[in-house]
């Protein structure tokens, strides 16, 4: 087991096989290549994508089907190739890949970036934040207002 420091979850023990690799980093965080995925059972279905090298860097993520049950992946062939799958067809969510969206707080609202989901190859745990091609999904899909969250 390895351990890493985190801002939100204390020190974590993790098995090296659970590391998720982003060969291209994430847009805006291109140097961050290794993450682990964290779950707090009482906060299901939220997931947390924690950088292994920067304790402060942690993203909140939701499985795409929580927000958009009919979501259709339209990845670029380059992104499909990057995660080691056949670029001639779109990967299947829940079969070939996990697909999740990152949440952000802006203007007093929590929004999700449906335009650029995190897509992880389930077999190899190689992932990419895949900006969708020819898609109309919003980069700031409204999930909740801050008031709704504080009231809970």
């Amino acid at each position: 087991m390895n351990s890493c420091r985190t801002r939100y979850f204390d020190a974590l023990q993790y098995d090296p096989s659970s590391v998720i690799r982003f060969p291209a980093g994430l847009p805006g965080f291109e140097d961050e290549r290794q993450f682990i995925l964290i779950e707090e059972p009482q906060r299901r279905p939220l997931l947390f994508l924690q950088s292994l090298t920067v304790p402060d860097l942690c993203f909140t993520m939701l499985p795409i089907f929580v927000l958009s049950p009919d979501y259709i992946l339209r990845m670029s062939p380059e992104d499909i190739d990057l995660i080691g799958l056949d670029p001639s067809r779109q990967p299947r969510i829940g079969v070939d890949v996990f697909c999740g969206v990152l949440l952000a707080m802006q203007d007093n609202e929590i929004t999700a970036n449906l335009l650029a989901p995190i897509v992880m190859n389930l077999a190899s745990r190689i992932a990419v934040q895949a900006v969708q091609i020819e898609a109309d999904y919003s980069h700031c899909y409204r999930v909740a207002t801050q008031e709704m969250v504080v009231a809970c």
């Binding site: 939100y8 994430l26 847009p27 805006g28 965080f29 009482q42 906060r43 299901r44 279905p45 939220l46 947390f48 860097l57 942690c58 993203f59 909140t60 990152l102 949440l103 952000a104 707080m105 802006q106 929590i110 929004t111 970036n113 650029a116 934040q129 980069h139 700031c140 999930v143 909740a144 801050q146 969250v149 504080v150 809970c152």
Partner: peptide, 17 residues
């Protein structure tokens, strides 16, 4: 830009469940 916002602070989103 969205990722920089997303990385700013996760505590609000954590309360989202």
């Amino acid at each position: 830009r969205q990722n920089r916002l997303a990385a700013a602070d996760v505590t609000d989103a954590q309360r989202l469940a």
